[in-house]
Computed example of a mutant assay.
Amino acid sequence: MSNKEKFLNLVSEEQSNTLQNLKERKKNRAMLRESQSIAYKVLMRLETLKWTQKRLAEKLEVTPQQVSKIISGKENLTLETLVKLQVVLEIPLLVTCIERAFDEIMKTHKVEVIQDYDIPENITISVKQNSPVVKKISFKQETETYNYFSTAN
Rank of each mutant, 00 (worst) to 15 (best):
M31C: 06
L22W: 04
A57D: 04
I91M: 07
L85V: 07
N28E: 15
K50A: 10
I71Y: 04
R45D: 02
K74F: 05
L56Q: 03
V11T: 06
E13M: 07
G73V: 01
W51P: 02
N28W: 06
I71M: 09
E34T: 12
E34R: 12
E58Y: 07
P92E: 14
A57S: 05
T48P: 00
E61Q: 13
L89Q: 06
L32K: 12
E24I: 10
L56W: 06
E5T: 13
V88D: 09
Q86G: 06
Q86N: 11
V62H: 02
E90Q: 14
E14Y: 08
R45V: 01
K50W: 04
W51A: 04
K23S: 08
R33A: 09
L49I: 00
S35R: 04
S68P: 01
A39P: 01
L22R: 00
Q86M: 14
L77Y: 01
L82A: 07
N17I: 08
G73I: 01
E75N: 14
L19F: 11
L82W: 06
T52M: 03
K50D: 12
V95R: 14
F7H: 03
E5R: 14
N9G: 06
S37E: 11
S12I: 02
L85E: 07
E14W: 04
K4M: 12
W51V: 03
L8D: 05
L49W: 01
S68R: 05
L8R: 05
T48H: 09
E47D: 14
M31H: 11
A39M: 01
K69T: 04
L49A: 00
T96Y: 13
Q65A: 12
L56R: 03
P64E: 11
V11S: 01
S12G: 01
I91N: 09
L43S: 15
E34S: 12
N17F: 12
P92I: 06
Q15I: 13
P64K: 07
P92G: 11
T48D: 11
K23H: 15
T63D: 05
I71G: 02
L85A: 02
M31K: 10
F7A: 00
V83N: 14
V88A: 10
V11P: 00
E5Q: 13
A39N: 04
N28F: 08
Q66G: 02
K74H: 09
L60I: 04
V83F: 15
I98R: 09
Q20L: 13
Q36S: 10
E13H: 08
N28R: 11
L85P: 01
T96I: 11
E75F: 11
V95N: 12
K27Y: 05
L93Y: 11
S35V: 07
L8Q: 07
K6V: 09
L77Q: 03
K6P: 00
R29S: 12
S72R: 04
Q53R: 10
I98C: 11
E14H: 06
K26R: 07
R25W: 05
A57M: 02
V87Y: 13
R29Q: 14
M44Y: 06
F7E: 01
V67Q: 00
Q86R: 15
T18R: 08
S12A: 03
L56K: 03
L49D: 00
K27E: 13
K41F: 09
I38R: 05
T63Q: 04
V95I: 14
